[in-house]
Amino acid sequence: MRFLVTGVAGFIGSAVAQRLCHMGHEVVGIDNFNSYYDVKLKQARVRHIAHPALLVLDCDLADREAIARLFLTHRFERVIHLAAQAGVRYSLDNPMAYADSNLIGHLTILEGCRRHQVEHLVYASSSSVYGLNRKQPFSTRDSVDHPVSLYAATKKANELMAHTYAHLYGLPTTGLRFFTVYGPWGRPDMALFRFTEAILAGQPIEVYNHGDMRRDFTYIDDIVEGVVRIQDVVPAGQPDWNAEEGSAASSSAPYRVYNIGHGQPVKLMDFIAALENALGRQASKEFLPMQPGDVYATFAETEDLFEVTGFRSQVGIEQGVQQFVDWYLGYYGQPAKANIAAR
Rank of each mutant, 00 (worst) to 15 (best):
M1H: 00
F11N: 08
A17W: 07
C21W: 02
G24V: 00
V28G: 07
D38F: 01
Q43G: 06
Q43R: 13
L57F: 00
A62H: 11
A62C: 08
D63C: 04
I67T: 03
F71K: 04
T73H: 11
H74Y: 15
E77L: 11
R78L: 01
R78A: 04
A84G: 10
Y98V: 10
N102D: 14
H106I: 02
E119W: 03
E119P: 03
Y123K: 08
Y123C: 12
V129D: 09
V129G: 13
R134Q: 13
F138P: 00
T140W: 00
D142A: 10
Y151A: 10
A152T: 02
T154Y: 04
K156H: 02
N158I: 01
L168P: 01
L171T: 09
L171Q: 14
T173N: 09
F179I: 05
F179E: 06
G186P: 07
R187V: 08
P188E: 11
A191Q: 13
R194W: 08
R194C: 10
N209S: 15
H210F: 15
M213G: 01
M213F: 05
F217K: 05
I220N: 12
V227L: 08
V227G: 08
D240H: 09
S247M: 03
A249C: 01
S252P: 00
P254E: 13
Y258D: 09
G261Y: 11
P265I: 01
A273C: 06
A273M: 02
L275C: 11
G280K: 06
Q282A: 10
Y296A: 15
A297N: 13
F299P: 00
A300Q: 05
R312Y: 12
V315N: 03
G316D: 15
E318L: 06
Q319H: 09
Q319F: 00
F324Q: 11
F324G: 07
D326A: 14
D326T: 15
D326G: 10
G330P: 06
G330N: 13
G333F: 07
K337G: 15
N339G: 02
